[in-house]
């Protein structure tokens, strides 16, 4: 296998303590690789640390420990100047197409900005590159002088993608890139992202809660719970052979487009789930005490490329008390 484009090891992010409490550990010993031209889907509970992981990789959020290597270069210890140069290689596509574009900037200016900052093309060539980017994301270059509110949600998301691609990155973090869009627009944006990946060899960290969308785009899938990765494997392994109880919970909770079955599914959902405990901190895990607390100690490789962090693995065995 070729060297990974991105290598993340034992990444931890803590937010400062409040009023005499322990700091919130939002990301806890997260490790994974992303190969060139591949997509890692990141799914998990709301508040489990997905966005924070993405931000820490892009160095938009300081890590408290751990390593992030992009193209073989360690980002966490880099000087501001070197980091600015590396930013050309890594970009962010955010969740909300409504608030991630500046309302008073035309599309042309939005796309020209990163080109000017990174001096990617000579100043006189910027309009041509802007037109090229519009075409790349399937939009008519003639509309570049319009403002964001004049576009639909799907069109705005295309512009956000064009802005991320302006500097020719190798790696893009997509944080819920389609969740605000209706199903047909979602499908178009997913197609666009895949088309761009094939054409430009991009790697994606694709954060989403829609498991069907992740299934469609991801080569590998990581499942996060309480700041940790509890399962990691090829998409087929995780979807067809989920090992962690939380992964199984997630897959079972996907709504179905059949009113009678969906009503039954909702009625069966845990009546009063145990939501107690502190976000980002170990346990209490709904699957057993200290389930997450001992995640690293309980990582099991269950098949080549597929691992799970679970003290109840293998199923039926006595809880591992290491």
């Amino acid at each position: 296998m070729s060297a990974p484009l991105l290598r993340v090891r034992d990444l931890c992010v803590s937010f400062p303590a409040r009023r005499g409490r322990a700091p919130v550990r939002a990301v806890d010993q997260v490790s994974f690789d992303i190969a060139p031209g591949q997509t890692l889907g990141l799914v998990g509970e709301s508040g489990s640390g997905k966005t924070t992981t993405g931000r820490a990789i892009l160095q938009l959020q300081a890590a408290s420990s751990g390593s992030v290597q992009l193209l073989g270069r360690e980002l966490t210890a880099m000087s501001g100047r070197d980091l600015r140069a590396m930013r050309r290689h890594m970009q962010f596509v955010l969740q909300n197409p409504y608030s991630s574009l500046h309302p008073r900037m035309t599309v042309a200016n939005t796309l020209a900005e990163p080109l000017a900052v990174h001096r990617s093309v000579p100043r006189h060539a910027i309009p041509e590159r802007v037109a090229e980017l519009m075409t790349l994301v399937g939009m008519d270059p003639a509309v570049v002088n319009r403002y964001p509110h004049e576009f639909s949600g799907g069109q705005r998301q295309r512009i956000v993608i064009a802005r991320a691609l302006a500097v020719n990155p190798d790696f893009v973090v997509c944080d819920e890139p389609v969740s605000a869009l209706d199903v047909r627009t979602q499908a178009q944006i997913v197609d666009l992202l895949q088309h761009l990946q094939a054409r430009l060899g991009l790697s994606y960290l694709f954060i989403a809660h829609d498991l069907a969308v992740v299934r469609a785009v991801a080569h590998r899938v990581a499942v996060m719970y309480g700041g940790r990765i509890v399962e990691l494997g090829n998409a087929a392994q995780v979807y067809e052979n989920p090992a962690h109880p939380y992964t199984r919970n997630l897959l079972d909770a996907v709504p179905v487009v059949d009113p009678a079955r969906q009503r039954a599914l909702l009625a069966e959902a845990a009546a009063d789930p145990d939501f107690r405990g502190r976000e980002g901190e170990p346990g209490p895990c709904v699957f057993g005490t200290d389930h997450a607390a001992t995640a690293t100690a309980h990582w099991h490789d269950i098949a080549p490329g597929h691992g799970v962090s679970c003290r109840f693995w293998p199923p039926g065995a006595a809880p591992d008390s290491r």
């Binding site: 709301s46 969740q95 809660h209 498991l211 909770a253 959902a269 845990a270």
Partner: peptide, 20 residues
């Protein structure tokens, strides 16, 4: 208006149950 679009499916199910 799209009350659960930003939620994972298990939390979504809890919110939908709450609304019910």
């Amino acid at each position: 208006d799209e009350p659960t679009t930003a939620l994972d499916v298990t939390v979504q199910a809890q919110i939908l149950r709450l609304l019910m």
